[in-house]
Amino acid sequence: MNRYFRELSVAAALAVVLAALAVFAPAFYQPQPLLTLITGQVAPTLVVACGMTLVIVCREIDISVGSSFAICGVCGGLLLSHGVAVAVALPAAIVLGAIMGAFNGALIAGLGLPSIVVTLATMVTWREALRWLRQGVYVNIGGAQWFGLDQAAGQWTMIVVALAILLPLAWATKHLAAGRFVYAVGTDAEAARLAGIRPRLVTFLTFVLIGAFTGLAAMMAAVQSPQVDPTAGTGLELRTIAAVVVGGVSISGGRGNLWGVLAGLLLLSSINPALTYLGVSAYWEKAIQGAIILLAVVADGLRSRKQKH
């Protein structure tokens, strides 16, 4: 069986959905709504999913991304609303995200605590802190929408930024020793340690990276409207983890790549508009997404069983 069978089957499923839309709902391919959907729904999620891929390949998980996404968006938005330049506000949000990621990473890699528990705690803490501080009030960024560009330029910028994260990272995971370290640590941290790799450092850095990516994604999402929603990012962790798992990354670490994750994210993101275009009730959306995730997990389970025997 082909090494990339899993990725290819996701890509095939995506192709089937896109082909079905072309036949039954050609309206899907109008440029404006499609561009808005990609910039609004896909691009920021993809950036977070890139970080999530590394974290899961490293055999950890981060469920606090939704909360740090909201915090970075609001803080970046507040800077913009006070007239701070984009060139300052954007890096500030990224650094803030990286700091929150480093906090998770220090607890997980430094103290050896389980990542699901640590990030569950930070997810709740950060979300509630923001709720207390902002009371749900939107942040008006007004003229800073689209980073001050016009709509078309802003939308293309989002796509370029997402690709500017995805492409180098996809290259780096395959062509940099650092990328291979992540896979080695995720597969067998003790073997990696014996080989002179520092598993704890690698784990820590993946959390810093997902934090920085989350900060970037939060700003990408924030500037798509004149108001930043402090409840944004609710459920983001589920959407990214779903995309990563559907894309063929093994939840037990060490396997998968970003191309599969891209296909998985596009597949999951296309289900909802597809249902609207095909006139199917929204009641089916979650059920279909759940079925896709289940299928992916079962496929991985069968594969790892086969490997063991």
Binding site: R180, Y183, A184, T187, D188, E190, A191, A192, L194, A195, I197, G254, R255, Q307
Partner: peptide
Amino acid sequence: HGVVLELPIAHNMTM
């Protein structure tokens, strides 16, 4: 902890 069974031989050797 010696050979990472999932990784290719070449990766294992250069680890």
